[in-house]
């Protein structure tokens, strides 16, 4: 993937034919047009979040706010939806799920790619099949299992469930592991290393790029997950960031200046992470997609 980023395709700007100029115009026009529609829903939200109640009622939704430093909506949204607690919950869930997924996923990938044993292919196919089952449909019966384990309304129950439904990162690990030469393992064995040492000291450090990719993909997924969180974490103190937004349904249903502030708070961490590691996210998306 890293070689791919370097070879940005160069376009020689030599001569301008009429067709070439027309194409450039169309190119930029479509960029601006679709860029506009991509940003408008979010932009209107940002604008509204800075308006006070009177201003929100009296001005057009697309009119700019009088005071760009009016953070009172953000403060109010943060406290009403108890978002401090929600951030903490989301953070705990994310760290636990990522750590478990990485350890368990790399171990599984190690065993599946390095050893031949009966059932190896069956297990791979089981994961392939599992990736086809839509999560929403599965929750009809997973809910029953969760309640019989008394996992409902406990953070740990939700964490364990989220670790269990992890297929994409396992694929990334398997793919990556297959590209690491087995001669490395063999020479380590000759040097007297046991299998645990090979996994822990040799392969895991080499898997670092795959771990980063998997963490980004899985992290985004866990941070944004709301359906299961809503089903299994109904207690107010257990809301994650995504479900804490549900507080705004009902009594505050039409106070969009407040809701927009809440919405912006909820995706701000994602925005920051995105701005910081765009490259990894893009290449992660590409890798995650070619699992088939």
């Amino acid at each position: 993937m890293s070689t791919m980023d370097q070879t940005k395709i160069k376009k020689p700007h030599k001569k301008y034919t009429p067709g070439g100029i027309a194409w450039i115009v169309i190119e930029y026009a479509s960029l601006l047009f679709f860029g506009f529609w991509a940003i408008v829903p979010v932009f209107s939200c940002v604008v509204t979040a800075f308006k006070n109640a009177d201003e929100y009622k009296s001005t057009s939704v697309m009119a700019l706010p009088q005071n760009w430093l009016n953070f009172s909506n953000f403060a109010k949204a943060f406290t009403t939806a108890n978002m401090g607690r929600a951030f903490l919950n989301s953070f705990i869930v994310m760290i636990c799920v990522l750590v478990v997924s990485v350890i368990v996923g790399t171990q599984l990938a190690y065993v599946l790619t390095r050893f031949k044993f009966p059932g190896n292919q069956i297990i791979r196919n089981m994961y392939l099949l599992a990736s086809l089952l839509p999560s929403v449909a599965m929750q009809v019966t997973v809910y029953k299992i969760m309640s019989s384990f008394h996992f409902v309304n406990h953070l740990y129950g939700y964490i364990i469930m989220s670790c269990g439904t992890d297929v994409i990162s396992i694929y990334i690990f398997i793919q990556f592991m297959e590209n690491i030469s087995t001669s490395l393992d063999e020479s380590a064995i000759i040097d007297g290393a046991n299998y645990w040492q090979i996994y822990w000291k040799i392969l895991l450090p080499l898997l670092k790029p795959a771990v980063v990719t998997a963490c980004i993909l899985k992290g985004v997924g866990v941070y944004n997950e709301y359906y299961c969180a809503n089903l299994y974490l109904q207690d107010k103190n257990l809301h994650t960031i995504a479900t804490s937004l549900y507080t705004f349904v009902g009594p505050m249903g039409s106070q969009y200046n407040l809701i927009c502030a809440g919405v912006i708070i909820s995706f701000l961490p994602a925005l920051i992470v995105f701005l910081l590691c765009q490259k990894q996210i893009y290449s992660g998306m590409t890798q995650g997609a070619v699992k088939g």
Partner: peptide
């Protein structure tokens, strides 16, 4: 154009 993919579902609902 990519960023909307990173916004959580409920926020999208409100937006």
């Amino acid at each position: 154009m990519f960023f909307p993919f990173l916004i959580n579902g409920i926020a999208i609902g409100f937006i």
